[in-house]
């Protein structure tokens, strides 16, 4: 997949590039509205990561242009302005997703994958990994066609891991994503461990080919068993 990153902040642009390259995406970058427009004129991309505040213009104008020209690029807005208005404006103009800065890199990859899936498979968002199938629309998980009985939180955790497989997931990030921002003051993450333990047990019993590994002191990582 080929991605164009439009971001004026050098450090952030570089780290997004590195991280996405690690996920085997092909990454091009633009540091202002003019060079972004030039690149979009010359090439086509699968996905554009668009910063709204650019030194020489507004990212929303680029978005408008993409949509006017009827191009098929998926657009994910990345902006430090997490005001609801901006978000609504962006989505109204046809952006596929909106990610408020600061974000976790794992989150970014997951969003790119999810947007691509939605648009490339005719709306079928089902994800298959080995013998495991997860359908976000109906919130159903099956192994070898047999439905797994997961609690709400277990499902949320599994979906989070599936979208970020192979990446290290920080306990705090996981907690914030699954439980919501209001848990960010928790000083003890035992409650996550309890859910992970149950999830592992259910996945093992069903004979799925994926494993949630603990990473010392930090969090977890989901891996596919060969």
């Amino acid at each position: 997949m080929k991605i164009l990153v439009v971001e004026d902040e050098k450090q952030l642009r570089e780290i997004i590039k590195e991280s996405l390259q690690k996920d085997r995406f092909v990454v091009e970058t633009a540091n202002d509205a003019a060079s972004a427009s030039d690149k979009l004129e010359a090439y086509s991309y699968d996905c554009v990561l668009l910063d709204i505040m650019l030194p020489d213009g507004n990212g929303l104008d680029i978005l408008r242009k993409i949509k006017q020209d009827g191009r098929k690029e998926n657009v994910i807005i990345i902006s430090a302005k997490d005001a609801i208005d901006d978000k609504i404006n962006g989505l109204d103009l046809g952006a596929d997703d909106y990610l408020a800065k600061p974000f976790h890199l794992a989150e970014l990859s997951a969003r790119i994958r999810s947007v691509a899936r939605r648009n490339n498979h005719g709306g079928d968002t089902t994800v298959r990994i080995g013998n495991l199938e997860i359908c976000p629309d109906s919130r159903e998980v099956s192994v070898d066609g047999k439905l797994l009985d997961l609690s709400r939180k277990e499902y949320d955790i599994l979906e989070y891991f599936i979208n970020r497989r192979g990446r290290l997931i920080n306990k705090l990030t996981l907690a914030e994503s699954v439980w919501g921002d209001h848990i960010d003051m928790a000083d003890n993450f035992d409650f996550i461990y309890a859910h992970i333990k149950n999830l592992r047990k259910k996945l093992n019993e069903a004979g799925s080919g994926i494993e949630i590994k603990s990473v010392y002191g930090l969090g977890y990582k989901m891996e596919e068993n060969p």
Binding site: S19, K22, L105, L168
Partner: peptide, 20 residues
Amino acid sequence: SHELQTPIAICINRMEMLME
């Protein structure tokens, strides 16, 4: 606080990459 957001996020992202 607004200006601090990006550098902090970059630090966090760098650390996350490092730990992978």
